[in-house]
Design a protein around this nucleic acid. Structure first.
Lengths: 110, 110
DNA sequence: TATGAATATTCCTTTACAGGAATATTCCGT
DNA sequence: ACGGAATATTCCTGTAAAGGAATATTCATA
């Protein structure tokens, strides 16, 4: 998994922007308005999201329409795949680990 | 989605810790060793992960065994669900949005 | 071409956070 | 009870990043 994507989503306003864009593509002004942000901050956050590949722009005259890109979400999903067995199996390997540790332990003073 | 979880995973070392714990529960010392971290930094990162609910501890004598908790991952998966149609449908609603904007536009000088 | 709307960028300040070093704490074995 | 191992905590410092305010840029239209 990419820490850059996580980092971009770690900021609450940016996370909200993403959740907003889930509904529909939006203009900078609309995003700022709906989230109660000032326009420059909205632009800055969108820049970060854009550089993380989470969002892409389409210029229409004066305005910039931002929309989500599927890739990071696909990747996140793929990443989660390796964790899925964690809750699908009830087996968490802790007992296994403890036994293993114990056996190393028993050979320590020889 | 919880920004705290994202924030915890945004730090590269912490992300690596999580990926390490995916294999098996581990001791602080083992984590530090495998990732080339100093013990205090490992402890601090584990604290953050713990407060985010990503990880839980089990004390065994001197040692603390850390393991992943399924919940945050379940939640992440559930959160992703709302984005899944984004790449499952090829339809991104941008054209829709443009038409909508255009119709608002046409009624602007009256 | 001058004007205003939409957006991006810059500069500044404040704050959060990561790493380093040192120290405190807890536990086992002797 | 003492010494050492494993872990947690504290203090300090540097740095990155977020918000505010101001300004630059770009575009459509009169």
């Amino acid at each position: 998994m990419n820490a850059t994507v996580m980092s971009a989503l770690a900021e609450p306003n940016r996370l909200q922007i993403v959740e907003l864009l889930r509904e529909s593509p939006l203009t900078v002004g609309e995003i700022a308005e709906r989230l109660g942000l000032r326009q420059p901050q909205a632009s800055k956050h969108l820049r970060v999201l854009s550089e993380a590949g989470i969002v892409e722009v389409q210029a229409v005259a004066n305005r910039r329409i931002y929309k989500l890109r599927p890739n990071p979400f696909k990747e996140l999903d793929a990443w989660l795949e390796s964790y899925r067995r964690m809750w699908e199996e009830r087996y968490d390997r802790l007992d296994e680990y403890l036994l293993e540790m114990q056996s190393k332990e028993s050979g320590k003073h020889d």
